[in-house]
Amino acid sequence: MRNQPKYNLFKNTIYALKGLKDIIQNESSFKIELLLACVMGIIIVCIDVTVVEKLLLFITLMGILIAEAINSAIERVVDLVTLKHNKMAGRAKDVGSAVVFLSIILCISVWFAIFYTNFNKIF
Score class of each variant (00 low, 15 high):
29 S>C: 00
55 L>F: 11
4 Q>I: 12
73 A>R: 12
102 L>H: 14
10 F>D: 11
80 L>M: 04
14 I>V: 14
94 D>S: 14
92 A>Y: 04
74 I>L: 03
9 L>N: 07
49 V>H: 06
49 V>G: 01
79 D>H: 09
122 I>S: 08
116 Y>K: 10
94 D>E: 14
113 A>G: 02
13 T>M: 04
89 A>K: 06
7 Y>G: 05
66 I>L: 13
5 P>Y: 01
66 I>H: 10
75 E>R: 05
60 T>S: 14
56 L>H: 08
10 F>L: 09
89 A>P: 11
2 R>E: 10
30 F>V: 07
8 N>F: 00
102 L>Y: 14
78 V>L: 04
32 I>Q: 10
39 V>D: 11
53 E>C: 15
40 M>C: 07
54 K>M: 05
114 I>Y: 08
27 E>W: 01
105 I>N: 10
89 A>E: 07
9 L>D: 10
33 E>I: 05
50 T>C: 12
58 F>H: 12
110 V>T: 15
16 A>P: 03
85 H>W: 01
40 M>Y: 09
58 F>S: 14
34 L>H: 02
114 I>F: 08
35 L>I: 11
62 M>G: 14
45 V>T: 14
100 V>I: 13
104 I>D: 02
68 E>H: 03
58 F>P: 02
11 K>E: 11
39 V>E: 08
98 A>P: 08
112 F>V: 05
7 Y>H: 06
94 D>P: 06
87 K>N: 09
71 N>K: 13
121 K>V: 07
53 E>A: 15
83 L>M: 01
34 L>R: 00
106 L>K: 08
74 I>F: 02
63 G>K: 08
32 I>T: 13
35 L>W: 02
120 N>G: 04
83 L>D: 08
20 L>K: 02
113 A>F: 01
37 A>H: 08
55 L>P: 05
24 I>G: 03
108 I>V: 15
62 M>C: 13
22 D>C: 00
69 A>W: 04
78 V>A: 11
52 V>M: 12
35 L>R: 03
36 L>T: 11
55 L>I: 12
18 K>W: 10
53 E>D: 15
97 S>F: 00
56 L>I: 13
15 Y>F: 08
41 G>F: 00
38 C>T: 09
111 W>E: 12
39 V>M: 06
41 G>C: 02
105 I>K: 07
64 I>F: 14
92 A>M: 04
85 H>P: 07
101 F>P: 01
4 Q>H: 06
41 G>Q: 02
11 K>D: 10
49 V>Y: 05
51 V>W: 12
16 A>G: 02
52 V>K: 12
80 L>F: 06
88 M>G: 08
6 K>Q: 05
114 I>H: 08
52 V>Q: 13
